[in-house]
């Protein structure tokens, strides 16, 4: 008994899902009214507002730390899942290894959560930066 035989229902299910998506898209294409497409109709929907610029704007860079945290905890969870499904749950030595493994990663997570407020721009700093840039710009303008 090979392993991939167990996954044949999954393959059939994926085929069914693909067929369902195609059928739903076709049905909505048939049923919807075909009106003229203009820029007003295809613009981004913002509730009660005129959309300003594209939808892909930039956020502060430091938000990527949260995704890195998710990735690290994801890797840790995968290895601890391997430990949890095996019969090693009762072995004291393996439990200590798991504790060391989790403690090292959790120390990093704690350090990041502690250092992250210092790594982000606070409000007064942003205001000071903006005023310095504005002063420099006006100085250049008056010189030119």
């Amino acid at each position: 008994m090979r392993l991939f035989i167990d996954f044949v229902p999954l393959l059939l299910w994926m085929g069914l899902v693909t067929a369902l998506v195609i059928v739903m898209l076709l049905a909505s294409w048939v049923l919807r009214p075909h009106v003229l497409q203009n820029s007003e109709k295809t613009s981004t929907y913002e509730c009660g507002e005129e959309p300003l610029g594209p939808a892909r704007i930039s956020f502060p860079y430091s938000y990527i730390i949260y995704t890195v945290l998710f990735l690290v905890v994801d890797v840790m969870g995968a290895f601890m899942w391997l430990y949890a499904v095996s019969a090693l749950r009762t072995s004291v030595f393996v439990v200590w290894q798991v504790v060391v493994f989790a403690a090292v990663i959790m120390a990093a997570v704690m350090f990041v959560l502690k250092i992250l407020p210092k790594a982000q721009m606070t409000g007064p700093e942003v205001v000071a930066l903006y005023e310095a840039a504005k002063e420099q710009a006006t100085g250049l303008h008056s010189e030119g």
Binding site: Y61, I64, V68, L71, V72, V75
Partner: peptide, 20 residues
């Protein structure tokens, strides 16, 4: 796979600094 995860995290953060 685990090294690829750590490497991608560091590479993306370095790319942010490059873009900066």
């Amino acid at each position: 796979i685990a090294v690829a995860a750590a490497e991608t995290a560091l590479a993306m953060v370095l790319m942010l600094l490059y873009h900066r």
